[in-house]
Amino acid sequence: MSHTPTRLRVVRAAAALTAGAALFVGGPAGVALAAPPAVVAAATDHSLHLEGAPNARDVGGYETVDGKTVRTNTVFRTDALDKLTPADLAKLEGWNVKVVDDLRTVYERALQPDKLPAGATSNWYDVLGQAPITTALDLQSAYVAFIDAPGASEAFASVLRDIRETDGTVLYHCSAGKDRTGWTTAVLLTILGVDRATVNADYMLTNEYVDDSGSSISGSLMGGGVKQEWLDTSFATAEAKYGSFDNYVHQGLGLTDNDIAALKAKLLV
Rank of each mutant, 00 (worst) to 15 (best):
N73R: 00
R77Y: 07
R77P: 05
R57D: 02
N55K: 11
V65Q: 13
T64Q: 04
T69N: 04
T74F: 01
K68C: 01
G52A: 10
E51W: 06
V65P: 00
T69I: 15
A90P: 02
N73T: 09
K83W: 01
E51A: 14
A53K: 01
A53D: 06
T69H: 00
D58Y: 03
R71T: 07
A53L: 07
V70N: 02
T72Q: 09
A53M: 08
R57T: 08
V65F: 08
L81I: 05
G52E: 10
N73V: 07
V59A: 15
D66I: 05
D58E: 13
T72P: 02
G67Y: 03
R71I: 10
V75D: 12
K68I: 09
N73W: 01
D88R: 05
V65I: 15
G67R: 03
L84H: 06
L84Q: 07
P86C: 11
D88F: 09
G52L: 10
D88G: 11
A80Y: 04
G52P: 07
V70H: 00
A56S: 13
T69Q: 04
E51S: 10
A87V: 08
R57K: 13
R77C: 14
V75H: 12
D88S: 11
T72L: 01
A56I: 06
T72F: 02
E63A: 15
A90H: 05
K83L: 14
L89E: 09
R71M: 06
F76E: 00
T85C: 11
V75P: 07
L89I: 10
N55W: 13
A87R: 06
A53W: 01
R71F: 07
L81A: 13
G61I: 03
T69L: 13
A87H: 09
L89N: 11
D79C: 14
N55T: 12
V75W: 05
L89W: 03
D66C: 07
P86D: 14
N55H: 13
Y62S: 08
R57E: 07
G61P: 09
D82H: 14
L89Y: 12
T72D: 02
T69P: 00
T64N: 11
D79W: 06
D82C: 14
N55F: 14
D66P: 06
L84I: 05
D88W: 04
T78W: 10
G60C: 07
A80C: 10
N73K: 00
T69E: 01
V70R: 00
D82I: 00
V75A: 10
K68T: 14
E63C: 00
D79S: 13
E51H: 08
R57Y: 09
D58H: 06
G52H: 08
T74M: 11
E51I: 08
R71Y: 09
D82P: 00
T72I: 11
A56W: 06
V75Y: 11
V59Y: 06
D66L: 07
G52F: 07
D79Y: 03
D88T: 01
D79L: 11
L81E: 14
